[in-house]
């Protein structure tokens, strides 16, 4: 079980860095709550209830982007990635560790954002929450890989949203559908399919992205 042990060690490393430095999570929290307040002024009263769910998803995607943009910064700043790639562990474990740590940040941010959404706007059902969780998995799986790709580029902060947003469109469809549709299970199944396809793709291709 060395693979799992590697993943756990890498995830714990990221969580510990965050716990000590507090670089990412407070920014995500502040961003998502501010975004919700902006949405209050952005939606006219006549827009109806469903519009709020759509904007919740805009907030989630952009909050995730904020976290993802920071995901590989510690590795980049101190040349840790080279060390990790040279370490005798499967390279995909690096991706999985990062994806899990990012997922932890995103879920933590949503633990504040979703109650705030319910307080400010509309209630969220079980299907909507399941949709959020399933979409989170997809966001972190794809985002961790794309963020590693973008981190090697010249304009990484600019590049990541461009790479990520077209891939996030199906997730938004699934998430919004799970919240507003009467046949929510179709959308949850779709999100599950997305997660499976792109998690496997990211897991298999991460090695090619980080090796020289």
């Amino acid at each position: 079980m060395t693979y799992l042990a590697d993943v756990v060690a890498l995830t714990r490393k990221d969580l510990r860095i965050e716990l000590r430095g507090r670089d990412t999570l407070p920014a995500m929290l502040l961003f998502v709550v501010t975004a919700l307040v902006i949405f209050h002024f952005a939606i006219p009263d006549a827009a109806g209830d469903d519009a709020a769910y759509g904007l919740l998803w805009v907030a989630i995607v952009f909050t995730a982007l904020l976290g993802l943009a920071r995901a590989w910064v510690p590795e980049q700043e101190h040349g840790v990635l080279d060390g990790l790639v040279l370490a005798p562990c499967d390279r995909s474990a690096i991706w999985l560790g990062k994806a899990l740590a990012t997922l932890a940040f995103l879920v933590a941010a949503q633990a504040v954002a979703l109650p705030a959404f319910v307080l400010f706007f509309e209630p969220l059902g079980v299907a909507a929450l399941a949709g959020v969780l399933l979409a989170d998995i997809g966001i972190c799986a794809v985002g961790s890989l794309l963020s590693a790709m973008a981190a090697a580029g010249r304009a990484r902060e600019l590049l990541l949203p461009l790479l990520f947003l077209p891939l996030a469109i199906p997730l938004v469809v699934g998430g919004v559908g799970a919240a507003v549709s009467e046949q929510a299970e179709r959308f949850l199944l779709f999100l599950l399919l997305y997660d499976a396809v792109f998690a496997v793709l990211s897991w298999a291709s991460f090695e090619y992205v980080v090796t020289e």
Binding site: P170, G174, S181, F190, L201
Partner: peptide
């Protein structure tokens, strides 16, 4: 580029599903 070909059917499905709402 490989993500792209995975995105084609997934997006198509998503757009079909989105018609629903």
């Amino acid at each position: 580029a490989l993500f792209g070909v995975a995105l084609i059917p997934v997006s198509f499905l998503a757009i079909r599903l989105a018609e629903d709402f």
